[in-house]
Computed example of a mutant assay.
Amino acid sequence: MNGYERRKQKKAEQIYAAAFDLISKFGYSKVSINEIAAMAKVSPATIFNYFGTKEQLYAETLDYWVDKQIEAYENILASTRSFPDKIKEILLLEADNVKTYFDHTTSPLDTETSSFLQSGSEEKIKQFFINIVELGKQEGYIRPNYSEDIIQAYFKMYINEFSRLLQQKKQAESTQQIEQLLHLFFYGLMEKK
């Protein structure tokens, strides 16, 4: 990457950060391109040159955000921690991210943009999920006879409940419930005899 491309990438990252921050705080419809430009320290023309429309900026910002989350999860997965510790951290981060995403994605994206964003994100998430399952099977934490679909449904079930609990105020009760859910996730409902 040459100097021009690095500068362009840095500007795009500034714009993504400003857009996500402002839209997260105020909502899509209440934030203008001028406000995003001011926070990113670029001109509104730069945003239009890079992204074309506010809607496209929003879609690409969300896509960029998903990429950053997956990158963080991949770093956790590549760490030397135990598989259960990795999964615990990933589940908690994902539940928090799901909450953040749905709290701040109320924009009127057109069908084409929404479909592009969803399909691109789903493919990235699916590939990461496959990596988790393979590692879990290799290390003996996931039974090899379970299908990917069943394992994925299991993960989604827990992530949905974690997200619900995280939406509550962070109280000791929520923390205790999350710990119990994590125990159930790894060991199931039945005690071994």
Results as ranks from 00 to 15, higher is better:
Asp67Thr: 15
Phe129Gly: 06
Ala172Tyr: 12
Ala17Tyr: 05
Glu5His: 11
Glu74Trp: 01
Gln177Ser: 07
Gly3Ser: 12
Gln167Asn: 12
Lys68Tyr: 08
Trp65Gln: 14
Gly140Trp: 11
Glu148Leu: 13
Ala40Ser: 11
Asp96Phe: 11
Val133Phe: 12
Ile87Ser: 05
Ala19Lys: 10
Arg81Leu: 15
Asp103Thr: 15
Gln177Cys: 08
Gln171Asp: 13
Tyr101Asn: 01
Ile178Ala: 09
Lys193Arg: 01
Leu91Phe: 01
Tyr146Ser: 07
Thr61His: 04
Ile151Met: 13
Tyr50Asp: 05
Tyr146Val: 12
Ile87Gly: 02
Leu184Glu: 02
Tyr58Leu: 13
Ala40Val: 03
Gln177Tyr: 13
Val66Gly: 04
Ala72Pro: 03
Thr106Glu: 10
Tyr50Phe: 09
Asp85Ile: 06
Val133Asp: 12
Lys54Met: 06
Ser119Trp: 03
Lys126Cys: 02
Met190Ser: 09
Thr53Lys: 04
Asp63Asn: 15
Tyr73Ile: 00
Gly27Trp: 02
Arg164Cys: 09
Gln69Ile: 08
Ser163Glu: 04
Tyr73Pro: 05
Asn49Ala: 10
Leu189Thr: 13
Arg143Pro: 05
Glu161His: 02
Tyr187Gly: 01
Ile15His: 02
Gln138Trp: 06
Lys41His: 14
Glu173Cys: 04
Tyr73His: 13
Met39Asn: 04
Gln69Cys: 08
Ala38Asn: 14
Ile178Cys: 05
Ile151Ser: 04
Ser115Trp: 02
Glu71Asp: 14
Ser119Gln: 02
Ile142Lys: 10
Thr80His: 10
Asn49Gly: 05
Glu134Val: 14
Thr111Arg: 02
Leu117Trp: 02
Thr46Ile: 04
Leu189Gly: 03
Thr111Gln: 04
Leu184Cys: 00
Glu148Phe: 09
Ile151Phe: 13
Asn49Ser: 14
Ile15Ser: 03
Arg164Lys: 14
Phe186Gly: 03
Glu173Ser: 15
Ala153Lys: 12
Leu166Ala: 11
Lys88Pro: 02
Asp103Ile: 09
Ser107Tyr: 03
Leu182Thr: 05
Ile76Glu: 00
Gln167Arg: 14
Ile23Lys: 08
Ile130Trp: 06
Tyr187Trp: 05
Asp96Glu: 09
Lys192Leu: 00
Leu189Ile: 08
Thr105Leu: 15
Glu122Ala: 11
Pro44Tyr: 08
Ala38Lys: 10
Ser147Leu: 10
Ala12Leu: 11
Asp67Glu: 13
Ala59Ser: 00
Ile150Ala: 15
Tyr141Val: 15
Phe116Met: 06
Glu71Ala: 09
His104Leu: 07
Asp21Phe: 14
Glu179Cys: 06
Lys193Ser: 02
Lys126Ser: 11
Ala95Gly: 15
Ser115Gln: 02
Met190Val: 08
His183Gln: 13
Ser43Ile: 06
Ser32Val: 09
Val98Met: 08
Tyr58Glu: 05
Thr106Arg: 09
Leu22Asp: 01
Ile130His: 08
Ser115Leu: 01
Asp110His: 00
Gly3Gln: 15
